[in-house]
């Protein structure tokens, strides 16, 4: 006879463990996401900084006398904030998207789906970690370029505002891409056919005033243009369009994307099938 076929007994009250801390779930997920890239900072921060510096050396040398930035601003100086912002944006995207797709493919995404984390906590943790990685990389590019170029800092708060908002926009886009993609190559396609062209064609390497009118109009439809133009305004105090317009466009784009991403997460799209 089986030895344990008795009636269920009245269960004892189980004593709680540890201390309950408000928002501990969100804070832990954020900590984990930051640790995830920080533990491999050589690949996630140092490598993209090196990349940007190579761009800087080559482009500044080749293009210095051919391309115009803003009026009297030296081209190399003009280029540096653009490269810093481009790296910031690309790495913010890479952070959330690669973290999510890795977790999905290895299956350890269940570790964040089983606990009582709300979809808002989930979203905030992934996006904030992405912003932080973007800021680290952006700051790295600026620091490394100090020996090559004199950069003014006209309005540091604008720099921070565009860095954070742009990073949040791309971090959010990374959440969508990471959830949508089932394989690494789908993610790579997203990166190569959307993120790369949009960042490259956003005025990183030139002022759009140097473009023919048609391409100027096209650039105005690219939200990345406003991110980079506004970011650059923080350094030079001049820009292709008003920083307030850029702030409005980038702010609006971020809010719209955040609403979309949160709606996806709330429905459990692809994560809770």
């Amino acid at each position: 006879m089986p030895e344990v076929s008795q009636q269920p007994r009245q269960p004892a009250e189980l004593p709680p463990v540890g201390r309950e801390v408000p928002l501990a779930g969100f804070r832990t997920l954020l900590y984990k996401e930051v640790l995830r890239f920080w533990k491999v900072a050589f690949q996630t921060v140092a490598a993209p900084v090196l990349n940007a510096v190579l761009f800087l050396l080559i482009f500044a040398h080749v293009l210095d006398r051919h391309v115009t930035g803003y009026g009297e601003v030296d081209y190399t100086a003009f280029l540096v904030p653009g490269l810093a912002m481009m790296s910031l944006l690309q790495n913010a995207f890479a952070n959330s998207s690669s973290s999510l797709i890795q977790s999905k493919i290895t299956g350890n995404i269940v570790f964040v789906l089983l606990p009582p984390l709300s979809y808002r906590e989930f979203y905030s943790a992934y996006v904030i970690a992405s912003v932080l990685r973007g800021l680290f990389v952006g700051a790295g590019v600026l620091l490394v370029s100090i020996p090559f170029v004199h950069l003014p800092l006209a309005h540091p708060l604008w720099i921070l505002a565009f860095g954070v908002l742009g990073g949040a926009f791309l971090g959010s886009l990374g959440v969508i891409a990471g959830i949508q993609a089932d394989k690494f190559d789908q993610l790579a396609a997203f990166q190569n056919f959307l993120i790369m062209p949009l960042t490259m064609l956003s005025g990183v390497f030139y002022s759009i005033h140097s473009l023919p009118p048609l391409w100027q109009d096209v650039s105005h439809a690219n939200p990345f243009f406003y991110m980079i133009d506004g970011f650059r305004y923080g350094f030079f105090g001049q820009s292709d369009v008003s920083p307030w317009l850029s702030l409005a466009v980038v702010g609006f784009c971020f809010v719209a994307l955040a609403v979309l991403t949160l709606a996806m997460l709330a429905r459990g799209y692809k994560l809770r099938a």
Partner: peptide, 30 residues
């Protein structure tokens, strides 16, 4: 829940993993 699939997070040690998991459930000092 102990899932059927043998999944793990290669970034962390056993104790780190358990602390993180506690944190997800709102618990510190566990």
């Amino acid at each position: 829940v102990v899932p059927q699939e043998l999944v793990f997070d290669p970034f962390f040690s056993v104790r780190e993993m358990l602390r993180i998991q506690s944190g997800y459930f709102g618990i510190r000092g566990n």
